[in-house]
């Protein structure tokens, strides 16, 4: 007969074991996805382009309007805050440096990642969860179709390609919106602002943001899939895991961002 454990300690232990199991599942999904991507054709189950394009339309093109609006808002906000803060030192003219670097290195990848997690990560979790409770994943398995190759690889590839592209678009929109405000507020003109941005930004800054967004793409997809595949308990379970997927994806994005910045900038 086992010893009686304090309930709190037992709960912590179970949660820790569950967390490690989920991490292992996520790693295995990523490994299997790369396997099918590399060897699918040789194994007679190629990853097809049509579903990747379909996912790309949904993840990328359909997200453009909202990304545009939010990126422009963030650009304006940074410009307003930048000028307000720098006024304290009489250094408003240096606002472009802060806006350009923080947009390209931090805000664009972050806001794009959060938005895609909310739009597409949650949709992925809900779709897989519904498929699971409807036995559609079992149906794929018994047809001899690998579910990871059929259901996970297309959104993973689409996300990994489109998230950096969306981030690039968010960079442009955000910088342009900030430029309009700065040019009007400081009476310098948009061309001068654009020149300054081009001279200040290095390729390294741009790549820093884009590399992060590619990592966020993998995180959003895998978190969505892990949660979708873990659904149990019918429609309520789908709702619960969809919410969990958004919260976990956004948390993973923010924490990974911090770790990435720590590793790369020191």
């Amino acid at each position: 007969m086992p010893h009686r454990l304090p309930p709190l300690l037992e709960r912590v232990g179970r949660a820790a074991v569950g967390g490690v199991a989920e991490l292992g599942f996520a790693a295995s999904l990523l490994g299997q996805s790369l396997y099918w991507l590399a060897l699918g054709r040789a194994r007679g189950q190629p990853v097809r382009l049509a579903p990747i394009f379909a996912q790309g339309m949904d993840i990328g093109i359909a997200a453009l309007p909202i990304i545009t609006v939010l990126a422009a808002t963030i650009g304006l906000m940074l410009a307003i805050q930048g000028i307000y803060t720098l006024k304290t030192f009489g250094a408003e003219s240096r606002v472009t440096l802060g806006v350009a670097l923080s947009t390209v290195r931090e805000f664009s990848p972050l806001i794009t990642g959060i938005l895609v997690a909310g739009r597409s990560g949650s949709a992925l979790a809900a779709r897989l969860g519904t498929m699971r409770i409807n036995q559609e994943i079992d149906a794929l398995t018994v047809m001899g179709i690998a579910p990871v190759r059929f259901l996970v690889v297309p959104p993973l590839v689409a996300m990994a390609v489109l998230m950096p592209l969306l981030t690039l678009w968010a960079d442009l929109v955000s910088l342009a919106a900030a430029g309009l405000y700065i040019a009007a507020e400081l009476q310098t003109g948009f061309a001068a602002y654009a020149d300054e941005v081009l001279s200040l930004l290095k390729l390294n800054d741009l790549m820093h943001g884009l590399a992060k967004s590619a990592i966020f793409a993998v995180l959003v997809t895998i978190v969505g899939v892990v949660n979708g595949a873990s659904v149990s308990g019918g429609a309520e379970g789908v709702g619960r895991m969809t919410t969990r997927s958004v919260v976990q994806a956004i948390s993973a994005i923010v924490v990974t961002d911090m770790i990435f910045v720590f590793m790369v900038t020191r």
């Binding site: 519904t130 498929m131 409807n134 036995q135 559609e136 079992d138 149906a139």
Partner: peptide, 8 residues
């Protein structure tokens, strides 16, 4: 399958 499990 019992529910059909058709892809919706």
């Amino acid at each position: 399958f019992q529910s059909g499990a058709l892809f919706s």
